[in-house]
Amino acid sequence: LPQPMKKPCNGTLVNKIVSHLLVAEPEKIYAMPDPSIPDSDIKALTTLCDLADRELVVIIGWAKHIPGFSTLSLGDQMSLLQSAWMEILLLGVVFRSLHFDDELVFAEDYVMDEELSRLAGLLDLNSAILQLVRKYKSLKLDKEEFVTLKAIALANSDSMHIEDSEAVQKLQDVLHEALQDYEGNQHSEDVRRAGKLLMTLPLLRQTATKAVQHFYSIKLEGKVPMHKLFLEMLEAKV
């Protein structure tokens, strides 16, 4: 069921969008690291790549519930997802990690601390993700903002292969308006809050690029098994 709004709103379409995005939020996914295998870099990376592959399936299903996404051409739907998938994955990790200190909650059963990050060779990348966590912690990002920002990251992914840029712009406008309307109603004390949230997107893009490059180089080494969808999305980004 949709969560009730915290304050009465104007009943406009835009707030319906935030409510709709809350309902469309996927169920949590577990990492399920193999307990019979001793911890190693390969095990950690295999666990993360398998988790990402399963999350991608869910993200593709989720995107279809963003109002206006499914009316885009199939080509444009693919282009947006191919550009934004890592940003969407990272926003999920970041949101799950907001109530943790210096740990990244890739899944409820897979929380990476500094030691595990070092073991996996992910110390640099995870430090970059923790910088995003700190940013959203300081903003006290709430769930409504998280789901709206995720949809905005998808619509605003700057793919070079968009066929109908007017339709994509319309999608961006609808989501932007939803965020502004939500902030106007729920955070009227800070008139710059929507802007502050949008200003986090460059760091998200930068961190996602770093993550894709890192996992692409892992793919080239060939030591970590990767599922087909994850590989397909990784190859679409480089």
Partner: peptide, 20 residues
């Protein structure tokens, strides 16, 4: 689309959507 056939299939196939 040949290079991206899983994404293409999942977008076309309604079965991947989470139940709402």
């Amino acid at each position: 689309t040949e290079r991206h056939k899983i994404l293409h299939k999942l977008l076309q196939d309604g079965s991947s959507s989470p139940d709402i």
